[in-house]
C-alpha cells in the first residue's frame, strides 16, 4: 500500500498522462469509427435482407448467415482473423485500421438486428399507404419507415456502443496501443498493478459515461414514437 502512495506523484507525471490520454483517445476513436461505419453498413445489410423476390434469395441468405455467424464468434477471434487476413493481403496495414475493421465487422452483426427490429416496429399499414402511392421500397424506408423507427433503434444502438467500448480492450492482444495495452505496459515498468488498472478502469468509465448520457438525452428528445402503435396487420378481408 505504501508503495502505491509513493508511486502516485511519479505515475501521474506528464509523459504518463499524455500516454494515457492518447490511448483513451485511441480507444474512443476506434470504437466510434467501428460502430458508426458498422451501423451504416448494418442498414445496407438489413435493406438487402428485406429485398423481396425469388432472385434475391441468395442475397437474403448471405445476410442472415453473416449475422448468425458473427454473433457466434468471440470478438477476439474476429480480431485475430482480421489481423492475419489483412496482413496476408497488405502487410503494411496499420494496427488501428485492423482494429477498426474488426470492430466494424462485429458491430454490423449486432446492430443489424437492432435496426431490423426497429424497422419492423413500424406498422405495416404505413408501408401499404406508401406503396399505394407508388413510393419505391427505398423511398418508403427513407421517408416513412426510418423516421418512425429511430426512437426504437437509437437507445439500444447506443447501449451497444457503450458496452462495446469495454470489449475493445481485447484488441490490445494484437498490439494496438489502446488503454488496456498501455496499462500492461505501465504495469511492466514497475508501477503498482492496483494503481495502473484502477486508473485505467476510471478512464473507461469516463469514456462511456458521457455516451450513456448522450443516449439518454437522445431517447428523451426522440420521445415516444408518434401516433398510436398498432400491431402488424397481416391482412384484412
Amino acid at each position: 500500500m505504501e508503495r502505491i502512495f509513493e508511486q502516485i506523484p511519479r505515475f501521474f507525471s506528464g509523459p504518463n498522462l499524455t500516454l494515457l490520454l492518447e490511448s483513451a483517445g485511441l480507444t474512443l476513436a476506434m470504437t466510434m469509427a467501428g460502430c458508426l461505419i458498422g451501423f451504416g453498413l448494418a442498414f445496407v445489410l438489413v435493406y438487402v435482407r428485406q429485398t423481396p423476390g425469388k432472385w434475391a434469395m441468395p442475397l437474403r441468405w448471405i445476410c442472415i448467415l453473416y449475422v448468425e455467424v458473427f454473433r457466434r464468434i468471440p470478438f477476439i477471434v474476429v480480431v485475430y482473423l482480421v489481423l492475419f487476413f489483412i496482413q496476408a493481403v497488405t502487410p503494411d496495414a496499420s494496427l488501428f485500421t485492423i482494429a477498426v475493421i474488426a470492430i466494424c465487422l462485429y458491430a454490423v452483426a449486432y446492430t443489424a438486428d437492432i435496426i431490423r427490429g426497429g424497422l419492423e416496429s413500424v406498422p405495416q399499414t404505413q408501408v401499404e399507404a406508401a406503396q399505394a402511392m407508388n413510393l419505391s421500397r427505398l423511398q418508403t424506408n427513407l421517408r416513412i419507415v426510418l423516421p418512425q423507427a429511430w426512437p426504437v433503434i437509437v437507445p439500444p444502438a447506443i447501449a451497444f456502443a457503450v458496452s462495446f467500448i469495454k470489449d475493445t480492450a481485447l484488441v490490445s492482444q494484437v498490439g494496438v496501443f489502446e488503454l488496456t495495452f498501455r496499462g500492461k505496459e505501465l504495469n511492466n515498468q514497475g508501477y503498482s498493478g492496483i494503481l495502473v488498472f484502477g486508473t485505467i478502469a476510471f478512464c473507461y468509465f469516463l469514456l462511456s459515461f458521457p455516451l450513456s448520457m448522450l443516449g439518454q438525452y437522445l431517447e428523451k428528445r426522440l420521445g415516444t414514437p408518434r401516433g398510436q402503435r398498432r400491431t402488424r396487420k397481416l391482412w384484412s378481408p
Binding site: T125, Q126, E128, A129, I144, S236
Partner: peptide
C-alpha cells in the same frame, strides 16, 4: 385509396 385506419404518415 383511403384506408379504414386512415394510415396517415405519422412522422
Amino acid at each position: 385509396i383511403v384506408f379504414q385506419q386512415y394510415n396517415l404518415f405519422q412522422n
